[in-house]
Design a protein around this nucleic acid. Structure first.
Lengths: 331, 331
DNA sequence: AGGGTCTGCGCAATCGGTTGCAACGGGAGG
DNA sequence: CCTCCCGTTGCAACCGATTGCGCAGACCCT
């Protein structure tokens, strides 16, 4: 069976101009000889690669792992491959990542928790094929739940507000916010803690603990400062920090929640099995990744960015903000 | 400045045949016009893409996240992009992943904890451009530390043996192994627990708890069986399972390590800050990813697989296998 | 001044799949 | 019997970067 390249190409693409007999013969031969089309040639002609670029800070981080996992799964389901680059919270590496994507000709790019300004991003990649996932709020034009096209966000403010109000209802007065460090800051969370406390009157002083750069790996120093000050409750930048602090504060003889209540952020799986179990503002991280892939692929097909997405968050109350006695036997 | 395409190409590649003036002019123009070479065209001509395929079970798993992170970092440092696909512990998806890699023309493929047999793998991808990372031992031809070319392993047996001997030294007699489930089994770990106990005589009976498929998400059922039997020590398939069991066993009033000692496997970061802190057989997961990328790239350049790699593991003793009183104030 | 050498650059082919257009063969209608 | 038409298939151009080969011009030597 000898057919020309064009006939083979059309037969494999189910072109109706090709006769059924020829089509079947070509397909059989393709399977027989283990034929795999050359993506480079196809991309060159079609001017698209069916590959997406995913830029995120760190693959080791449970939350970003979730996001990446869901993004890859959704992209794969829609026929796209995913090229992943970790930016490592370094603007230089993020620029390099965008260059890698450009050179590999990805059809679109998703940037998760990026450090580059939207201005710079839009200079380096086609803005109509770029979605921003979980950007720091200060980099966005509008605020307060406004949906910018091509931006996937979570409603952090509502979650933090609810968490703080939960602590107030628990009887806490001196509530402190623990920052995540320079490269992993989120101004909206700190601001929301402050504004919520203000809204409840001057009986609730706000305090902030700035985290040293390596607070995750070694929360000891931070815990010492907190133990010395001894606030009644801690709202932490994220769960990893909260869990690390719980462990470090235990060294100082501080019992949680009896001596101090703690709230985390993200809702990572380990928060649910920590001892005590960690109350947290749970973010739908898988949804975040899925929505990013969906939006990006739609943008590629339509040539324009779809509506922004604002995902709800949920306060999950656990032992770290409740009486241990009351909650001990609760699953 | 008008030059032909060939001159531009050579100028950008620093070809000595191009005059300095022309070279500089071309480079300036390239920057000026924001030129990015088309990867598809380049790949088509060069017959390589400078992209690697990474197939792993799950991006959400902390260990595989570590591996992926290190793999991506090393690959990026050597000028390669990484296309990631999660196989989700499903042979069908693993086959799909290999097809995706083939269609995108990756220069090489790394398979982490894959389910497909080496036979099938070598049928689907060029065996000289394939490295196996952390394969189940039963799928490998030789055993006991033998290094198969293109295979990156860890010395699990030594680590498990040391962990069991540590438990024996702690005075434990009834030591049980908790499996990881069908899709995440590792025969060598169970076998090593058994053989180590046998080596210490009949005073040490071996027991095995098979894990239900969703032991990670809901270890309650498993914990109930363990609580009923009450062995003196548990060697768990991995840290996630161990941490989940610690939490579930607490519900049964079992104190760790006083009533039962626990050892995990992997050395994930949360093992170090759990309460009690988890003793574990720590695996150099970042090394695993780095070695995989290095081996794969060397294979691509040399056209043949480099020596296999056998990485050492380390038993990290923490509170879950020691007296809490003795260790409470130790950082 | 003519032949030879060397430097610097362009022409054209190449990679493999896709696609507009033309061609080819056979059957039906005139 | 000839022509027209339709259903199929092939030809050739194209996508963009790379590269072997050849050519033009400058320069040197005799």
């Amino acid at each position: 069976m000898n057919v020309s390249g064009s006939t083979a190409s059309r037969a494999l693409a189910d072109d109706p101009r090709i006769g059924a007999a020829t089509r079947l013969a070509v397909k059989a031969a393709a399977i027989e000889m283990n034929y795999v089309p050359n993506a480079a040639a196809r991309s060159l002609r079609a001017r698209r690669t069916r590959a997406l670029g995913l830029l995120l800070p760190d693959l080791r981080d449970p939350v970003h792992g979730q996001v990446a996992s869901a993004f890859e799964q959704e992209a794969r389901a829609q026929g796209y491959g995913v090229m992943v680059v970790a930016g490592e919270r370094d603007p230089g590496r993020e620029r390099l990542a965008l260059r890698i994507f450009a050179e590999h000709g990805t059809d679109g790019v998703a940037v998760v928790s990026g450090l580059l300004s939207p201005r710079e991003l839009r200079d380096r990649v086609d803005p109509d094929r770029l979605v921003l996932v979980w950007p720091d709020h200060r980099s966005l034009p509008r605020r307060d739940g406004a949906r910018t096209p091509g931006v996937i966000q979570t409603d952090d403010a509502s979650g933090v507000r609810a968490a703080v109000e939960h602590l107030i209802a628990n009887g806490c007065r001196r509530i402190a916010y623990v920052e995540g460090g320079v490269r992993a800051s989120n101004t909206i969370r700190a601001e929301t803690v402050a504004s919520t406390l203000r809204a409840h009157g001057e009986r609730f002083p706000m305090q902030t603990f700035p985290a040293p750069v390596d607070a995750w790996r070694d929360p000891g120093q931070l815990a010492a400062r907190i133990a010395a000050d001894l606030p009644e409750a801690l709202v932490c930048y994220d769960d990893q920090l909260a869990l690390g602090l719980m462990d470090a504060l235990r060294q100082h003889g501080i019992r949680i929640p009896d001596d101090m209540q703690i709230v985390g952020f993200d809702g990572i799986p380990f928060a649910a099995i920590a001892n005590p179990r960690l109350t947290t503002v749970a973010v739908p991280s898988a949804e975040l990744g899925r929505a990013a892939a969906t939006s990006l692929i739609r943008a590629i097909h339509d040539g324009a960015l779809p509506e922004g997405v604002l995902l709800p968050v949920e306060v999950v109350v656990r032992q770290s903000t409740g009486s241990v006695a009351a909650l001990a036997d609760q699953p």
